[in-house]
């Protein structure tokens, strides 16, 4: 199984009085512009996606929509509560294994995504040794079903580099 992990793009700042509820913070136009270009880079390097799963929070949902439009148009986006910042890693693994597909994109938040990546690579909950910038992405491969410590990191590309790949 291949797992493409994408952090949401640049959103309105935390604490902005126009978006009192943190869950409602949307992407800024700048964030959308940048991620559109980064998504073109992802189209070049990512596998064909069977599913796109997003955190239900607005900024992640909007990122997933752009990813879908650029990389895999017409694909439905599914939402998973285990992808919210406080989501449980083991529950997320169980959810993904139930899907029974070959390649999945996950769109979520930091530090949840980096700790989830580290969990899948090294089996540890409490150490994050990768970091995703906003709009950055990583690809992991698993020989079989997802399990803690069983993944291999194929690549991790930060958004500036993705935009360059997309523009090439």
């Amino acid at each position: 199984m291949e797992l493409l992990i994408v952090r949401h793009a640049i959103a309105v700042e935390h604490g902005d009085p126009a978006f009192e509820n943190d869950d409602d913070r949307p992407l800024t136009p700048e964030g959308i512009h940048k991620f559109r270009l980064a998504a073109r880079g992802l189209k070049e390097v990512a596998p064909k996606l069977d599913r796109i799963i997003s955190s239900p929070l607005v900024r992640a949902r909007q990122t997933a929509e752009i990813l879908r439009d650029v990389v895999s148009p017409h694909r439905k986006i599914d939402f998973c509560d285990h992808l919210v910042p406080s989501g449980d890693h083991a529950e997320l693994v169980a959810y993904l294994n139930r899907l029974g597909v070959e390649s999945v994109a996950l769109v979520g938040h930091e530090p949840h995504l980096s700790s989830f990546t580290s969990y899948l690579l090294a089996g540890k909950h409490d150490t994050a040794f990768v970091e995703y910038k906003k709009g950055g992405a990583g690809l992991m491969e698993f020989p079989d079903a997802l399990a803690a410590g069983s993944g291999t990191l194929e690549w991790l590309i930060q958004p500036g580099a993705l935009r360059d790949i997309g523009a090439a």
Binding site: V12, A18, P26, P29, I32
Partner: peptide
């Protein structure tokens, strides 16, 4: 139009 709508939504919120 998609990005423009998001731009308008943020302006509206402000």
């Amino acid at each position: 139009l998609y990005v423009f709508a998001r731009y308008l939504e943020i302006r509206r919120a402000r």
